[in-house]
Design a protein around this nucleic acid. Structure first.
Lengths: 239, 239
DNA sequence: CGTGGTTTTGATCATAATCAACGTCTGTGG
DNA sequence: CCACAGACGTTGATTATGATCAAAACCACG
């Protein structure tokens, strides 16, 4: 067996349960090893893809953090999401055969390249894969609706609390601490995602720290009282 | 041939080019006639589906307008979109087998019910359909990113201008006037979608009207100077 | 022809943006 | 190893934008 091939097989990847459907037969699992054509490393501040690039592949993150941004014609950028290991990037490119946003590494990263034609061919044969692709895209749509809710009807404190709890949950799902983690993004990037200015993010953080709800030292965050954050996201429940 | 069957066939539906892939062979077209199980009428203010309902089908809108809303635990609602004839509703339900938002008719409507298992089966066989489904979901994701941009980094006037231009474009794509149309939603619903209060929407509308950019009489809107609206959406280009 | 939902407009207020200055960390080259 | 530059983060003072509160007008519909 070719060692290189073995190395990039999904069947022995520890991110498997995040990227792929569960409950596959051994046979199906082996067919899915065709899925990943290659791996690609993207260094900090590098582009995985840019707005306008032709779309050929999706990308499964193996290690590291990305952000995606959409560009307004006038140069304003808006962060539309932060993606971490096990998450899939690139769905924005399907509709027009061109990517419609930038995907930028927030630290040194590695991704699995999933040629989209191969994914389509395989998901015609393996219905568990077909279903999985639909679910992942649906999850992205639901996530986006959550962000709209955040941006459309929450205060600065509520937005930040929601953001921190969301990060915590995703770290936990990957076996990391949900109460202590390092932010990979700047205050400005958080602000862009949350529709706030960086000063507002900083002030809200400081206020949370003052109140003893979190501890912050630069990018190091410890969530001391997750329940208090959760109450913030939805203040009416305690009235 | 059964008349009832003929009546609900996609192959002779005038929304066909909006719902379905183009360039199908006659044979493929006829296979796709299996897609729509039935039609359903939803009266004004009725629910097509509710948050928590089990997910079985997508819905293609034949006539009328819908809104989708997500509910916060505290009762706050956020409108996440307005959908019109030819657009597909229900993708939010795929990920958890339950719908995650409400879809509410803004006027009397009719939809085609597309059982999701049938859609999956057919798109394993007809790759043009598979591709189409992926494109439609991708378009939804890209649209959501646009809304995030709107909510995250635009002023009230910019948001409203963007909203009106978007509606105009969609009416045009359906063969209606892009300069004159009737809003199917209240100021409050527009406000919820744009992250603004209804008074702010009303004031921005009045200001546009004062400046001669639009004419408004209640829900009747005429866009007098689309270029001026476009400039508003992106003010820096004219500086 | 009144009733309720919707829209407009005005006055005031609150939240987050802006402008500004200073602190703190990181990495690089002398 | 230290000094320095530059990016990043914090905090304060002030301002602007849109929210809130309130009242009146308008419209649709039974």
């Amino acid at each position: 067996m070719d060692l290189k091939q073995a190395k990039i097989a999904c069947s022995n990847c520890n991110m498997r349960e995040l990227c792929l459907p569960i409950g596959l037969t051994t046979d199906e699992m082996h067919r899915l090893d065709q899925l990943v054509g290659s791996r690609r490393k993207v260094i900090r501040k590098g582009y995985l893809y840019r707005n306008g690039d032709s779309f050929k592949s999706l990308y499964a993150i193996r290690t590291g953090f990305f952000k995606t941004t959409v560009n307004a014609a006038d140069g304003r950028d808006q962060v539309t999401g932060f993606q971490m290991a096990g998450e899939i990037l690139g769905f924005d490119g399907i509709v027009n055969d061109h990517h419609q946003c930038d995907a930028i590494a927030l630290e040194d990263t590695e991704v699995c390249v999933i040629p989209f034609d191969v994914l389509q061919a395989l998901s015609r044969e393996v219905s568990a894969l077909q279903n999985h692709v639909h679910k992942v895209m649906s999850r992205e749509i639901v996530r986006d609706h959550g962000v709209m809710m955040l941006l459309g009807s929450m205060s600065a404190d509520e937005r930040l609390a929601g953001f921190l709890l969301n990060l915590a949950k995703r770290f936990q799902a990957r076996g990391f601490s949900s109460s202590e983690f390092v932010l990979r993004m700047t205050r400005e990037e958080i602000g862009s995602y949350l529709g706030l200015k960086l000063e507002t993010v900083s002030r809200s953080m400081s206020r949370f720290a003052e109140e003893g709800v979190i501890e912050v030292k630069q990018r190091q965050v410890r969530i001391v009282d997750a329940a208090a954050l959760a109450r913030l996201v939805n203040p009416s429940v305690c009235q």
